[in-house]
Structure formats: structure tokens, C-alpha cells
Amino acid sequence: MTDARVLHATLDLLDRQLLDRDGILCGNVDDLEIDRDETTGEVYVTALLTGPGILAYRLGARRLGRWTQRANRRIHDDDVPGVLEDRTRIPIELAGQIGPSISVAVGAKDLASHDAERWTLRHIIAHIPGNSSRAPQ
């Protein structure tokens, strides 16, 4: 029973697309945090993990993971006070609808997975003319 549930969680949660509260794509579920109830022995998913380095760690590339995290700390700007304690960890309570993609009740800004997106905007895209207008369709 327990194994079956874990398997289910892996299939339905892991590697799914995350959408923030405004529907912005904000990374995939790179890993899961799991806890076990000592008395019943049941296993729970307690948080969705997403962001730089997480996937590398999960795939066993520890050095790449460390390097990515270090690089991301450099490009992260602290001007936004985060609502999350850990910007790579979304408590499962904040996860809404779970379907082909998973909506979470945080903003993309609050997640570490979005730092590089904003860094690219500020340092590259913003300097190219025509970056803010939609192409006429």
C-alpha cells in the first residue's frame, strides 16, 4: 500500500510543470520532500522542491548541483522579501490543482527557479530594443 502510494506520487507529481498564482510557468517539480508517520508508517509528501541545483542533486550530479546553487546565489537579488522560508521548497499545503500541471499559491518571484529568468531580463533582454511589446499577430 505504502509503496503504491509513493509510486503514485512519483508519477503524478514528479517532473510536472508548476504554475504560479498568476499562471506563469515557474519550473518543474524537481524533487519531493517526503516524511513518514512513525505510528502508522504511512509516507507523506510534505513539499515540492524546485529550483537551481535540485534536479542535479536528484540525478546524482552533486558537483553540478553545488555549482548551480552557488551561481544562483550570485544572481539572486534580495530586493523582494520572500514569502517562503526556503525559496526552493513549496510546502504541499500551497499546492492547488494537480493535473497535467500543478498550480501553487505563490508568485514566481518567490521561487528560486525564477531568479535566472529575472536576471536574464535585467541584464540581457531589457537591453535589446522592442523587448516589451508583443509582436503584432
Binding site: 529568468e117 531580463l121 540581457i124 533582454i125 535589446i128 523587448n131 516589451s132 509582436a135
Partner: peptide
């Protein structure tokens, strides 16, 4: 579809 600001990477 959106502006490049919305999909920078």
C-alpha cells in the same frame, strides 16, 4: 506570443 520580457530565458 507574449513579449520577450515574459519568456526571457
Amino acid at each position: 506570443r507574449g513579449s520577450p520580457r515574459e519568456a526571457t530565458r
